[in-house]
Nucleic acid binder design. Structure first.
Length: 879
RNA sequence: GGGCGCAUAGCUCAGCUGGUUUAGAGCACCGCCCUUACAAGGCGGGGGUCACUGGUUCGAAUCCAGUUGCGCCUACCA
């Protein structure tokens, strides 16, 4: 009874049906009370504003592979999903929305604005969660967390207060990164440095009571308005006479003292530097050392303030132009040099950041970093690939205090309260009613915390901390963290710090860092370039399985990935191959139950595929356990497509069509057994189609409930593999001859084999039907008496002469050419081997087994050479 | 300035601790084939002085050093 199965795999409907099924049955839900061993991953929370891009697809597919694999290996697996509130990004979105209505957030007021953001979040936010589901991810959605939800907010609050109590949080007036467009401070990590082709302007400052000038060089001439000194290196002879003198700041005509500071590099610019303590981190420190005035010339929006004289009100870059013009007019601009330097940009809006003096909250990071450094050094946490360890160490050793306050409304409000009477600051878990010092009225700090201040708690906040939950007990520490390498500092390093500080244990034991997905030209995918590939579109076109497969098969271990839309055909073709293998097996087996494999009745092909199958189980498992996911997939591909489909399924056709029920049964039992297991091995990579065909074939409820096959040493059969490789080589040789001599499949041929090796001939004789079927042969003759035909195409396989009498069919010149080519390469190989064997030092130093191998090679190659030569002679004689 | 990575077929990449490979795969290309799972396929074929230069070694695509090119990260480059 044949079943009707579509010739081409149609994933439409299949994927959604199975995802619903998995969800309805709670297969993704993890039980903290389970007696199984736990395996946990926390998702890198995407922004609530995010839409799925190809990087998310790669990142989450890798996690899904680990989760599904471990589940089938018997673990209680938890994949903890959620999102972060993305303070700046989300506020931006809602502000843009307001702008369309002609409003800004101040029109609404803080409370209304935050309400509005929540509304936005409920209606439009979190689109990505739905999108992630189409990829088939086995996340425990019942536990979905959000950094702004109640439990996570509780954790943030607790951590802030507790760090404050430990003396790790302080408030200070310091130079920070200020984004004038977002109107907030940023951490060092949030400032992206980009190389800019800028200028170095040389400006003359007149020396007081003199006709002389001192020339300084700057990349930001507008900051001169905030200058409070000129500095030179104390050892710089050129400026010795200037020290202590006064110069006149052009345009504003303020007096500036000439000071010395060893920070100044005499070789850079002119060796004299203008000092602007309020707008440059170095100058700030120099200012501290010399007690210089800090003159702030900027408003928060990047325009110049009243300290800028006639420039006040201008935008910083307009002011720069105007100042340059004015200096030029005063003949004070002496030189304009091209100058490449790196400039900090806001990672959210790409605006150029200003170093800005302001009062902010900081985390004293040193003590936390120290422990986090140890965790990686000691191997408690392993980074994959491990090349990142050096980068991690370097960053950790040079880390600076973390600016955590943000001048935003969307986020966790800082639990610090200022007394309106005595000015004392109280930091508290619960808002105090009145000042604990003087009972005065309190006002909460208006700022919110950096979004990363909530996501660094993710591995335990999502499990219910600070409450003592069953989840924390079972699932912490988590096992594997999978994330893009660009986020190592932002997030990974900080999670390690917080985990060690608050859980007194690392948050995870292994970190898998993958690369960035780029376009075919190696460019980062971005909205502005319009070169992004929409994974949902690809999933729609080719299936989610295809997207997953393609991404993984193209992902080099830890390197960036280049990908184009057409590449997704790779995945589609693969799923189609699975489908058709299923179709083949299925159409050959009636609905009766399949017998267990009878190991007594196996043919060579069966023994061989079972052996290869067990090797595949071992290598794929080993790859996954050791974070080589692409390699695992590659091995699965090779086994399934090259060995199982190309060879094994071809080899069993004869039996399947033989009509002998016993032979059919044996072949089918092995074919199904191996196919099912292969589907299990592939399930973590392509979950949908494997579920579809596995359940269809087995009648089981779900592949997710099945156990991943384990490799059995006993079933690895080297002898069978040897034999098969002879069959394979011989078949390939015959097929090559046929193809190259253009012998159509309809023309059956006879094959003559001549060999000294009875054993080899016996192997072929025992399995002659394989060769006959694969090579479309009528007969095979072994060391036969029949005359060697004059016109024949020939080859040599394992010292066995392969003769295909093809009188009238072969092109003699072509065959001569073919043999000569072959001869050439074998002769080269022989020469190389001979060189080795005549090399005394090789003979003296190389291990005996290697020498033996080379001897064997020499023997084989020279045999082959002489046989090819003989064959060539036959041909030339005949023609 | 410091660090890291990459450089193998036209393209994307394998090739782990040096010797069973006469350097592989996929895509692209060429030829034959709609052979009763699959043309989204099968079979066969062409194509590489493994970036360059030295070194270690009996032996190097593989290890070491340097050079060049590209990429990334990092930095208090006025």
């Amino acid at each position: 009874m044949k079943k009707e199965i579509s010739k081409i795999y149609n994933p439409k409907g299949v994927e959604k049906r199975w995802y619903d099924f998995w969800m309805d049955n709670g297969f993704f839900h993890a039980d903290p009370k389970s007696s199984k061993e736990f395996y946990t991953i926390v998702i890198p929370p995407p922004n609530v504003t995010a839409e799925l891009h190809i990087g998310h697809a790669l990142n989450s597919t890798i996690q899904d592979i680990f989760i599904r694999y471990k589940k089938m290996r018997g673990y209680e697996t938890l994949w903890m999903p959620g999102m972060d509130h993305a303070g700046i990004a989300t506020q931006n979105v809602v502000e843009r929305q307001l702008a369309k209505e002609g409003l800004d957030r101040h029109d609404l007021g803080r409370e209304k604005f935050v309400e509005r953001v929540w509304e936005w979040k409920e209606e439009k936010g979190g689109k990505i969660i739905q999108q992630l589901k189409t990829l088939g991810l086995a996340c425990d959605w019942d536990r979905e967390a959000f950094t702004m939800d109640e439990q996570r907010s509780k954790a943030v609050n607790e951590v802030f207060v507790s760090l404050h109590e430990r003396g790790y949080i302080y408030r200070a007036k310091y130079i920070i990164n200020w984004c004038p467009r977002c109107g907030t401070a940023l951490s060092d990590e949030e400032a992206e440095h980009k190389d800019i082709k800028g200028h170095l302007w040389h400006i003359k400052y007149p020396i007081e009571d003199s006709a002389e000038f001192v020339t300084v060089a700057t990349t930001r001439p507008e900051t001169m308005l905030g200058d409070s000194a000129i500095a030179v290196n104390p050892d710089d002879e050129r400026y010795k006479n200037l020290i202590g003198k006064w110069v006149i700041l052009p345009l504003l005509n303020r007096k500036l003292k000439v000071i010395t500071d060893s920070f100044v590099d005499p070789d850079f610019g002119t060796g004299a530097v203008k000092v602007t303590p309020a707008h440059d981190p170095n100058d700030f420190e120099m200012g501290e050392r010399h007690g210089l005035e800090q003159i702030n010339i900027l408003n928060e929006d990047g325009t110049l303030n009243e300290n800028a004289g006639k420039y006040s009100g201008l935008d910083r870059f307009e002011a720069r132009e105007q100042i340059l013009k004015d200096l030029e007019a005063d003949r004070l601009l002496v030189k304009t040099e091209e100058h490449d330097h790196s400039v900090a940009h806001c990672y959210r809006c790409n605006t150029i950041i200003e170093p800005y003096l302001s009062e902010q909250w900081f985390v004293k990071i040193g003590p936390l970093a120290e422990k986090a450094l140890d965790a990686v050094k000691s191997g408690k946490i392993k980074l994959h690939p491990k090349k990142w360890v050096k980068t991690y160490n370097h960053w950790m050793e040079n880390i600076r205090d973390w600016c955590i306050s943000r001048q935003l409304w969307w986020g966790h409000r800082i639990p610090a309260y200022y007394c309106q009477e005595c000015g004392e600051i109280s930091v508290a878990r619960e808002e105090p009613e009145k000042c604990p010092h003087c009972s005065g009225a309190l006002k909460q700090d208006p700022d919110v915390l950096d979004t990363w201040f909530s996501s660094w708690l993710w591995p335990f906040s999502t499990l219910g901390w600070p409450d003592k939950t069953a989840e924390l007990k079972s699932f912490y520490p988590t096992n594997t963290l999978v994330t893009g390498n660009e986020i190592l500092f932002f997030w990974v390093a900080r999670m390690i710090m917080s985990g060690l500080e608050f859980m007194e244990d690392v948050p995870f034991s292994d970190v898998y860092l993958h690369g960035i997905v780029r376009d075919e030209q190696g460019r980062k995918m971005s909205k502005s370039l319009g070169n992004g590939i929409d994974p949902l579109k690809m999933a729609d076109l080719y299936s989610a399985d295809a997207v997953r497969y393609t991404l993984l098969s193209l992902a080099p271990e830890g390197q960036d990935i280049r990908i184009g839309e057409k590449d997704f055909e790779i995945g589609r073709n693969f799923t189609n191959k699975i489908w058709n293998a299923y179709r083949f097996i299925s159409s050959n087996h009636d609905d009766s139950e399949l017998p267990e494999i009878n190991y007594e009745q196996l043919e060579l092909a069966d023994e061989w595929i079972i052996s290869r199958y067990n090797a595949a189980i071992a290598s794929i498992s080993d790859d996954i356990e050791n974070f080589r996911v692409s390699s695992a997939l590659d091995n699965a591909y090779k086994f399934f497509w090259k060995e199982y489909c190309d060879w094994y399924l071809e080899l069993i056709k004869e039996r399947l069509y033989s009509g002998d029920p016993e032979r059919v049964k044996t072949a089918l039992s092995v074919a199904v057994h191996v196919f099912k297991g292969t589907m299990q091995l592939l399930h973590p990579f392509v979950p949908f189609i494997t579920e579809e065909v596995y359940t269809a074939l087995s009648g089981e409820k779900s592949i997710m409930l099945s156990s991943m096959p384990t490799a059995s040493e006993k079933l690895v059969n080297k002898a069978a593999e040897e034999k098969m490789s002879l069959i394979q080589e011989l078949s390939s040789a015959v097929r090559a001859i046929r193809s190259q001599m253009s012998v159509p499949p309809s023309v059956k041929a006879n094959l003559l084999l001549k060999s000294d090796s009875e054993a080899n001939l016996r192997i072929i004789e025992d399995n002659r039907s394989y060769i006959e079927n694969l090579c479309k042969l009528d007969s095979i003759e072994f060391n036969g008496k029949s005359e060697r035909p004059k016109l024949a195409a020939t080859d040599v396989v394992k010292n066995m002469e392969v003769i295909l009498p093809l009188e009238g069919l072969i092109d003699v010149d072509l065959e001569i050419k073919r043999l000569n080519k072959d001869l050439g390469s074998v002769e080269n190989a022989l020469k190389a081997v001979k060189n080795k064997l005549t090399n005394e030092s090789f003979m003296k130093n190389a291990p005996p087994d290697i020498v033996e191998k080379e001897r064997q090679k020499e023997h084989d190659f020279s045999e082959k050479v002489s046989k090819i030569k003989t064959n060539l002679n036959w041909l030339t004689d005949a023609s």
